[in-house]
Simulated scan of single mutants.
Amino acid sequence: MTQNVLTRNNVKITGSGKQAMLFAPGFGCDQTVWSLISKSFEKDYQVILFDYVGLGLSDVKAYDSDKYSKLSGYVQDVLDVCSALNLKDVILVGHSVGATIGMLASLREPVYFSQLIMIGPSACYLNDPPGYIGGFEKEDLLGLMDLMAKNYIGWATVFSATALNNPDLPDIEKDIEDRFCSTDPVIARNFAEACFFADNRQDLSKVTIPALILQCANDVIAPESAGEYINKSLPASTIKYMNATGHFPHMSHPEETAQLIREYLLETSVSVEKEDVGGLT
C-alpha cells in the first residue's frame, strides 16, 4: 500500500531536516510549481512533494471521476501520503485550493499536522452578499466552466494570464499555461468544479492548528476579502500582506514567499520554546 501511494502520487522526498514540510499544489498544478522555493527549505526540513491523482506525473489510471468530483478526493490523497510515510507534526504549505485541502485534511487527521501555511487561500470563491465577497458571481464561474468545455486551450491562456496578473513575467505566465494544457481537460474541469463551487467557510472555526495566511496584492482569484475572512474565522491565525501581486507568489515572487514562511516558522518556534520554558518555571 505504501509503495502504491508513493508511486500513485509521484511522491518526492528531499532535505535533511527532522520535521516534514509537505507542499500541496493548487488547482490544475503539479509539484513542480514549488521548485523555486522548496529547495530553500531542504537544509532545515524534510521536504515532501506530490501530485494529486490525475495531475503531473501521478498514476492517471488511479483517477476516479466520482472520487475527485469533490475536494474530499484530494484531501484523501494528502492523508494517504501522510499515512504512507508515517508522518506527524507536518507543516503543510498549500497554495490556493491546496490550502483548503490541507485545512480539511487537518480536520480529518489532526495528528498529522502542526501548522498550515496558506498561500492565496479562499474558503469560498462565490460572492455571498452582503456579508461575504469571494470574488466571483455564479454566472462568472459557470461561464468559466463553459469555456473550459468549448475551448480548453483558450481558457488556459486567459486563466493563466488573469491568475498570475504579472504581465511583465511572460515566461512564468507561459509556464502556468503549459501546466494547464498538459492536464486532461476532463480532469481539469472536474477539479475546477470541485474547487470553485466549494464552500468551506463553516469548517474554519473547527481548525485546531495555527495558520499563516499569505495574502497577495491584486489577487483576482483570492482577493483580500477572502483572506481576511479566513483570518477572522480561524481560531489561531496570522495574516501577512505581501508585496507580491497576483495568485502565484511562489512562482512570481519566490524570495518574498520563502522569506515570510521562514520568518513565521521562526517566530512560532521561539514562541513555543518560551511557552515550554514558562511551563517549567
Rank of each mutant, 00 (worst) to 15 (best):
S35W: 12
S40M: 01
D44F: 01
D44L: 02
D44S: 14
Q46V: 03
Q46I: 04
I48C: 08
I48F: 00
L49I: 05
Y52N: 13
L55A: 14
L57D: 15
S58W: 08
S58D: 12
D59A: 07
V60Y: 10
K61V: 11
K61N: 15
Y63D: 11
S65C: 11
S65L: 11
D66C: 09
Y68T: 06
S69D: 10
K70G: 10
K70T: 12
K70H: 09
S72H: 13
G73F: 00
Y74K: 08
D77W: 04
V78P: 14
V78W: 00
L79K: 14
L79Y: 01
L79R: 15
V81A: 02
V81L: 01
V81D: 06
V81W: 01
S83Y: 05
A84P: 07
A84M: 07
L85A: 04
L85P: 10
N86W: 00
L87N: 09
V90A: 06
V90D: 11
V90Q: 10
I91C: 05
V93D: 06
V93L: 03
V93K: 15
H95E: 08
S96H: 06
V97W: 02
V97D: 04
G98I: 01
T100F: 00
I101R: 13
G102C: 04
A105D: 07
S106L: 01
L107F: 00
R108C: 03
Y112D: 08
Q115A: 11
L116W: 08
I119N: 07
A123W: 01
L126W: 06
L126T: 07
L126C: 10
N127Y: 01
N127A: 11
P129Y: 14
P130F: 05
G131K: 15
